[in-house]
Each structure stands twice: as C-alpha cells, then as structure tokens.
Amino acid sequence: MREIFVLTEHRRGQIRDVTFEMLTKGRELAEETNTELTAVLLGKDVKEYAKTLSEYANRVLVVEDTKLENFNSEAYQKVLANLINERKPLLTMMGHTSYGVELAPSLATALNLPLATDCIDLTFENETFFVTRQMYGGKVNVRAVVRKSESYIATVRPATFQPQKPESMNGEITEIASPLTEEITEKRFIEYVLPPPGGVDITAADVLVGIGRGIKDEKNLPMMEELAKALGGVLACSRPIIDKGWLPSDRQVGTSGKTVKPKLYIAVGISGAFQHVLGMKNSDLIIAINKDPNAPIFSFADYGVVDDLFKIVPQLKEKIYELKGQKA
C-alpha cells in the first residue's frame, strides 16, 4: 500500500510538537487517499522516540547514524531522497520550521518533485493535490493546485492542526540501514547558540503591553513604557522592534521569541502575523489597538480598538491612573 510520510522533527532530546500535528493531519489524509501513515525518524540513538511515534502511525521507519545526530540538511536530504525513491510515498510532509525550510526546497529540486510550502490545509480531490496557504502576512489566503506528480512534498505551518492521539494504533517499527556511506562534507553542525540570559522575564509578567512596528519610532518608546508602568506590567514586542534594536531580544513574543500567557496582553500597533500570534494567543485577556480594521490581530483579541495608537495610549494611561486614584 502507498504511504504518506511524516518527517519527525526532534531537537535536543525532544520530539517537536509539529510532528504530532502532522501525524494527526497525515492520518486524515491517509484515510482519504487509502494510504498508510509512516513516521520517518532520522537521528542517533532515537529508538525511544520510535515507540512514541508508533502510537500515531501505521509504521515508523528509523534510520540511525552518528551523522544524523543533529539536524543537517545535507545528510537528511541524502537519506530522505533514498527513502522517497525507494518507497514512492504519495506525500512527504515536514514542518515549515527552521528545519523544513532548510531541507524541503532542495530535496524537492533534487528529486524533481513539486513542493508546496507553509500549508495550512492539504487535500486530495480526484487525485489532484490542493493546498491552502497564506500571502501578504496573513491578510489573504490562497488555494493552490500542485503540479500533477507521482509523489509530492509539503511543508506544514506549525500549530495549525490540533494533535490527537489515535485510540488504537500500534505501528510497526522498521529499522533501515543508513545510506550515508560517505562523509558529509559541505555543511557541518558546530553547536547550539542559546539566547543571552535576559534581564526581564516577560513570561512571568501578569500584564504585558506588546508593541509593534506601528509605534513608528524609537522616540515613542517612553510613551509605551509609561502605559506598561501604569498597568504594573512590562513591555513586550513583535519582532521588528527587536530587529531595529529598540528593545533587547528577551522581550520578543512569538515563534522565534517567547510564548507568553499573561492575564492581560495589550497589542499596540501589531498586525497579528501568525509568528507573533502563536506566542500570545493564549493570554487570558487580549486587547488590540490598531488603525487597520482588517488587521489579523483582531481575530485573536477579545476587545479591539480601531484608531490611532498615539491618541489612545496616553488617554488610557490617564484613565488607569484615575481608576487607581493616583496621579500620572
């Protein structure tokens, strides 16, 4: 029977969530297309993961090699190209993550297979492969049809599918000898670089004022700082604020920053790109201030204000102090 491959993503001793999300979506696709779900696991000393994965898939293919100890797209590409050539899966899924972004496009090119990236939905209809993805920072969705092929590759946006463990799955675990006979020469993993130890722990704060590119200029930071202070909270931010060096990197909320869950998150001048939203959408209360009524942030906020933040923020600070019976 034909298969759907899901590439297991793991790092520093842990299987990453996106794997289980893809296994859940993959199972649905396997049922639809009458194929079997196969988790592909590459690494060194990873057999214990295989047991966990077997609870989600019909089969786990394990390739162990010291050269696969840390993710390396050169090594991964060689192994996966072999597996795909031999087993001709209908579809190979991997995360639209740092690893998937590095690996999928060159793998697809080498194998001459069509690739769809950053998919938020995938379906087979009448043997045609359709995907849904986003454009313009999430303001527009696209339904696209993938060029007809015997085998497809797709990268899947993290946190899109809710992981669900099937009731009774006990996939067989198959070990496959590593095809990596030669040295990996073009790319070498050296080390992980941890973020510098931070001053302020935004994950511990009850109140966060999240500021984004909408604040326009570094000179407007004090105004935002004052609002945060009035609320007894701290400033957090979207990525552009870090990229511009206006705040230290430990203040960044989102996929490449921190995940926060404060009692109150006020998003000020933040559009609501998914990379940001993933880091704050589980906050207890979310209030968004943005002059664009169509900003995606409003689908995640409890309350929204469509107005110029420079008009609202100073007023809000005043009102908070009034309520507290203090002078600003």
Binding site: A108, L115, A116, F130, N141, A144, V145, D302, G304
Partner: peptide
C-alpha cells in the same frame, strides 16, 4: 511552476474582537 494559484480569499474569521 510547482504550484498554481487557483483563487485568493480573505481568511475566514473564526472569532472577532468586540470593537470598542
């Protein structure tokens, strides 16, 4: 190309903030 755009659409909103 690998993929061909079939149609664009505005993302469906599952939840909408209460506007003040």
């Amino acid at each position: 190309s690998w993929i061909k755009i079939e149609k664009l659409f505005i993302p469906p909103v599952e939840k909408q903030a209460e506007f003040i």
